[in-house]
């Protein structure tokens, strides 16, 4: 009898100990999961910097960033990535110039003009644009847009910066539309009512009150779109032609992203290291955009309240 009680007690003690241990284990597990994101970002940053620096050292920072000729496989190789940097910037600016007005106007339509039931039908369709894989955009670009451009502008080949800009501007639409719409809907109705009561028309109210009030949210949407455009690889690779020319609107060009993906599979030695350096430049661009986005979103969260 006594022995049984004793074993019972020890069993209970064991159980309590197991419970305490599992509690501790789970605590540690959740903590590790929590800091996993920090670890990943650290890993990516360290890898990007470590693998990107050697080639820049060997080539020279000035020559690398400002060199106008990229001839990685020539007998006397040259590694200047200015064409890629400029192409990426021009491409992104072009896509923003086309995508932002259209996206912003559509966001205005969804948030302020369209009847709610119509807006609820259109919104999922726009979200669908975000879900289409980038290779599908590329496929349509290369099989419809590129021949079209070649025919209209009488070019031997339609693969060009212009084609890439058009594809990118469609791809950034969903981020611009959804973020700007959220920002526009969050404008306090009192602002708009005051403007209407003062005799402004609905359109005047939208453009002189609502949009200025939502500007940091709209800016966040634009920056998000820019980030997407500058980081896009596959769709651009399929329509831009991938020749390392200095950018011209109807010329075949190479973006930062496509320079990496085009040569990575067969590269070696300094060429491979130079590709990692391109990735480092791209990574720095993206980090800059991320920080900017974060500042804008914070500003927006404060302004909304």
């Amino acid at each position: 009898m006594k022995a049984k009680q004793k074993s019972n007690e020890s069993l209970q003690r064991l159980r309590r100990r197991i419970r305490a241990a599992s509690e501790l284990v789970m605590n540690i597990f959740f903590f590790l999961c929590g800091i996993l994101a920090i670890g990943c970002v650290a890993l990516i940053s360290v890898y990007m910097i470590l693998s990107g620096i050697p080639a820049i050292r060997e080539i020279g920072l000035g020559e690398f960033l400002l060199g106008k000729v990229w001839a990685s496989t020539a007998s006397e190789p040259k590694f200047g990535i200015l064409p890629f940097i400029l192409t990426s910037i021009y491409g992104t600016v072009g896509a923003t110039l086309i995508g932002v007005p259209i996206g912003l106007m559509t966001a205005v339509f969804l948030a302020k003009i369209a009847p709610r039931r119509l807006a609820d039908k259109i919104r999922p369709a726009v979200d669908l644009l975000a879900g289409i894989p980038s290779v599908v955009y590329g496929l349509i670009g290369v099989s419809v847009l590129v021949p079209f451009i070649a025919a209209v502008f009488d070019l031997p080949k339609g693969t060009s910066l212009f084609a890439a800009i058009l594809v990118l501007s469609v791809m950034i639409l969903p981020s611009i539309i959804s973020v700007s719409e959220t920002a526009l809907s969050a404008v306090p109705p009192e602002y708009e009512e005051a403007s209407l009561a003062l005799g402004a028309t609905q359109i005047e109210t939208i453009f002189k009150v609502s949009i200025p009030a939502a500007k940091s949210g709209i800016a966040a949407g634009v920056v998000l779109g820019i980030g997407r455009a500058i980081g896009e690889a596959m769709a651009v690779m399929m329509v831009a032609g991938n020749v390392a020319n200095m950018p011209s609107l109807f010329g075949s060009v190479t973006f930062l992203t496509t320079a990496i993906s085009k040569e990575m599979s067969y590269s070696s030695g300094l060429q491979r290291q130079a590709l990692f350096s391109i990735a480092l430049v791209l990574f720095l661009f993206i980090m800059l955009i991320n920080v900017l986005l974060n500042i804008l979103l914070k500003k927006n969260a404060k302004g909304g309240r």
Binding site: Y47, E232, A233, S261, M264, I286, I289, N290, L293
Partner: peptide, 11 residues
């Protein structure tokens, strides 16, 4: 979430 996929590919 903002890092482009090509960089994920490289890393």
């Amino acid at each position: 979430a903002g890092i482009p996929s090509i960089i994920y590919g490289l890393v």
